[in-house]
């Protein structure tokens, strides 16, 4: 009951935080003059003369609180304005780009988290043995690799010498045409999952082949981080009194590690994992740009350089909500792992 109570309390708190997020974003927006904000609605240079009428139509000269509620209303209606970078409404662009990023994150995050935890605890258990030295060197190498450089090297190898093995973009030409045809039902808009749902195995394979390089680029760097945190927290847990108690009870070393040490060691890793996932969802600009995967990072990087304010605002709002929700999930996982948190 304690646990359920905790979750309900956190959900109620979530609403408050989300309102706070919209207020902050609106204040950021209100710093612009009405004319500047009206220009966000202009899609063609010929419309510049209409700025006054736009201000009047959208009520940009009204008191701030009325504007805030109007803005909220528009958001709930899905009206985020026009994205000049991709020449379509922001909400449509989001619906188009979001699944690609989500796909990348869904494939990378489990690999990063599971492999990181596994290697980290392996390295801690075999402390100062060859396995430990080897993984630590790998971690340092992985962590100090710049993403753009590593991505470019992969690109050079696989596009140069093994052409067509792991191609760029999100789907090949044939698969892309088929996916957008009427035969293919887009349940989730995530290519690989839709392919499985439609029973089209070749599209699934195609999607995976397009995922391999970006996933490698993302994971190699971030596994290093998770691994190092797991290693240090595991070492800390292994030195604790309860591990000695468990050993004095006669439990095997393996049981002690799995049952007593690892669960305690996971607590800091959960925080970092949630944070990594949120960062990945918020747009992996470099990876998506290098491999020409049209995802959120790809879009927002262009929007930011071309002063596409509605797109950038959408990015800010999305990131705000994303981090709040991820934090909530992390907190719930926390409470699941550590009963001491449930009290607070």
């Amino acid at each position: 009951m304690n646990f359920l109570n905790y979750i309900i309390r956190r959900l109620l708190l979530l609403i408050v935080v989300l309102i706070g997020v919209t207020v902050v974003i609106f204040i950021l927006m209100a710093l612009f003059s009405p004319a500047q904000r009206a220009s966000a609605f202009i899609t063609d240079i010929k419309q510049f003369g209409d700025i006054d009428s736009i201000i009047r139509t959208y009520g940009l000269d009204k008191p701030v609180y009325i504007q805030y509620f109007n803005w909220l209303k528009q958001i709930f209606q899905g009206n985020f304005g026009w994205s000049t970078t991709v020449s379509r409404p922001v909400i449509d662009a989001f619906k188009f780009f979001f699944p690609n990023t989500l796909e990348l994150a869904l494939f990378s995050a489990p690999i990063i988290i599971l492999v990181g935890i596994w290697i980290g605890s392996l390295s801690a258990v075999h402390r100062d043995k060859p396995v430990d030295h080897f993984t630590r060197v790998l971690a340092i190498v992985g962590w100090s690799l710049p993403t753009f450089w590593f991505g470019l090297i992969l690109l050079m190898i696989f596009y140069g010498y093994f052409q067509g093995l792991f191609p760029p973009e999100a789907l090949g030409y044939k698969a892309h045409t088929f996916v957008n045809s009427a035969e293919f039902v887009r349940y989730t808009r995530i290519n690989s999952i839709d392919a499985l749902l439609n029973g089209e195995l070749w599209i699934f394979v195609d999607a995976i082949r397009h995922l391999v390089l970006p996933v490698i680029t993302l994971t190699v760097v971030q596994i290093a981080l998770v691994m190092r945190i797991m290693r240090s927290s595991m070492l800390e847990a292994m030195g604790k009194g309860y591990v000695l108690t468990a050993r004095a009870k006669g439990a095997a070393w393996k049981t002690v590690i799995k049952k007593h040490a690892r669960r305690n060691a996971l607590i800091p890793v959960v925080t970092v994992s949630g944070w990594l996932f949120a960062l990945m969802m918020a747009g992996v600009v470099i990876t998506e740009t290098i491999f020409n995967r049209k995802g959120l990072g790809w879009w927002w990087a262009r929007a930011a350089t071309q002063l596409d304010i509605p797109s950038v605002l959408m990015a800010v709002l999305f990131n705000g909500i994303l981090f709040v929700v991820t934090n909530l999930i992390v907190d719930i996982l926390y409470a699941y792992i550590d009963p001491r948190v449930r009290l607070g």
């Binding site: 009194g241 309860y242 108690t245 468990a246 305690n264 792992i337 009963p339």
Partner: peptide, 10 residues
């Protein structure tokens, strides 16, 4: 120390 000899998460 009983408080550290017991595993906090079990």
């Amino acid at each position: 120390e009983a408080s550290s000899a017991l595993n906090p998460v079990l």
